[in-house]
């Protein structure tokens, strides 16, 4: 991971697993990770939607086949459905033909699907980045806690997180740590490096919302590091204003 000069000299001792990474590379990686996850999630969502449309066309077709024997169904209802069934029977499961066949029902689904999709994609991005961060956190904790004295309570672990882990990954210590002494910790970093490169147009709204995904990976790291030390916690990151960030750590069994 990244070091500033002082800690690099400090840690470049006899440790054989010490490897160094260019600071800019780490910055780029942390930045590029987010669009990558977004692209992946969007592509997967699109593919899934196509697949769902294909199957919904087929089910609509088979449904209309069953209904074609039913005398109660009016012909006005049946004709568009029947065209759908022929399209499906013709072996075409492409999205366009299927939606044309399933008519209003399919239209309604995809109409609401866009809003739900955004949430789903966002969820998928969060999950992917958070799990990546979690895995990285597990490894980092194992690697960098080896020469530390034993952590006896949660606060020790949080201190390790604020001082050591933060300076290893984000090149500075946490600026502020608050706790209610009942299992909730709030870490504030006034100059959070992964957010430091974000430039903002004036009067552009929704920046805080858009920069939120850049905190997913760091929250994962925090959660992974805590998990490695045996603390189950949920971590929430938000930015009150660039480039600062705050992380709320809620350990399992915490009281508000």
């Amino acid at each position: 991971m990244s070091f500033d000069a002082a800690s690099a000299i400090h840690s470049a001792g006899p440790d054989p697993s010490s490897a160094h990474v260019s600071l800019s590379c780490l910055d780029f990686l942390l930045i590029e990770l987010v669009p990558m996850a977004q692209r992946l999630a969007e592509e997967l969502a699109k593919r899934e939607e196509e697949w769902m449309r294909g199957t919904s066309g087929v089910t609509a077709g088979s449904e209309s086949k069953r209904r074609s024997g039913d005398t109660m169904v009016s012909t006005g209802m049946r004709t568009p459905r029947d065209s759908g069934s022929t399209a499906a029977a013709g072996g075409s499961s492409s999205g366009a033909a299927a939606t044309a066949g399933s008519g209003t029902v399919g239209g309604a689904v995809s109409g609401t699907g866009i809003a739900a999709d955004d949430d789903e994609v966002r969820e998928a991005v969060f999950y992917r980045l958070e799990m990546l961060g979690y895995r990285v956190g597990l490894g980092i904790a194992e690697r960098f806690s080896r020469d530390k004295p034993r952590f006896t309570d949660t606060l020790d672990v949080i201190k390790f997180l604020c001082k050591d882990l933060w300076s290893i990954v984000f090149r500075k210590q946490i600026d502020n740590l608050k706790t209610n002494h009942r299992g909730i910790f709030v870490l504030t970093d006034n100059n959070f490096k992964p957010l430091g490169r974000i430039s903002v147009e004036k009067h552009h709204h929704g920046v805080l919302q858009e920069s939120q995904p850049f905190l997913f990976f760091p929250t994962g790291i925090i959660r992974g590091c805590l998990a490695a030390m045996g603390i189950e916690a949920s971590v929430q990151g938000e930015t009150p204003g660039l480039p600062s960030a705050s992380f709320q750590i809620r350990t399992a069994g915490a009281k508000p």
Binding site: E142, R146, P149, R150, F151, M229
Partner: peptide, 29 residues
């Protein structure tokens, strides 16, 4: 009782020949 070190040293001497030594990392391994 061990708050400082990871090295637990001699755990138990099983018999004349065997003896067990232990080490506990900060991550519980």
């Amino acid at each position: 009782l061990k708050t400082a070190d990871q090295d637990f040293g001699l755990l138990t001497a099983v018999d004349d020949r065997l003896a067990m030594y232990g080490w506990l990392t900060n991550t519980g391994v």
